[in-house]
């Protein structure tokens, strides 16, 4: 086993374990913290794929901003842990069905047929001056310019909607 593989397996084990713990832990704050760990481990895996820009942005945006806000809200909630497992047995068959459907769809979409090594070869060693950011910018503003702009407009709409919903007029 090479050093790279060792790092890969370490990070992916942490990612899978903490991903499971997000669902399994009965304290919502702990669940959120495990989600943070999952993101962190995934960014480690992405670093191995030489996608350092995406990996660092994942930490910056999801861990640094989104999850902080999540925790901010979750910490202030009072969740009744005792009643959480009520009806576990009753809903179990339904849950199993939903899980199987979701797993099936995921395997079909991101399975080896589309994302196998044949269709998506692993990135080789890049030259020293290879810039992730330039490559992404290139693709984002040429091939994917429309989806990019449309998602930006959608986000803007969401911001305006959120502000207009929560805005309180000051009385004069």
């Amino acid at each position: 086993m090479t050093f790279y593989q060792l790092i890969f397996y370490a990070f992916s084990t942490v990612a899978v374990f903490s991903g499971l713990m997000v669902v399994a832990s009965n304290n919502p704050v702990r669940g959120a913290l495990f989600l943070v760990l999952t993101f962190f481990a995934m960014s480690g895996v992405w670093l191995l794929l030489q996608a350092e820009f995406l990996a660092l942005i994942l930490v910056l945006v999801y861990v640094g901003a989104v999850m902080t806000l999540f925790l901010f809200v979750v910490m202030m909630l009072r969740v009744n842990v005792v009643g959480m497992f009520e009806g576990f047995v009753r809903y179990f068959p339904l849950a199993l069905f939903v899980i199987m459907v979701i797993a099936g769809i995921s395997i079909m979409v991101i399975g080896p047929a589309r994302f196998g090594l044949l269709s998506m070869p692993a990135p080789g060693i890049k030259p020293d001056d290879f810039s992730n950011i330039k490559e992404i910018g290139m693709v984002l503003y040429t091939d994917y310019a429309y989806p990019f702009e449309i998602s930006a407009v959608m986000l803007l709409t969401a911001i305006i909607a959120a502000i207009s919903l929560s805005h309180r007029k000051t009385k004069k």
Binding site: E52, I57, T68
Partner: peptide
């Protein structure tokens, strides 16, 4: 620079 930003957000 991005590395520093990511760590300080951690």
């Amino acid at each position: 620079v991005l590395f520093i930003l990511a760590l300080s957000s951690l």
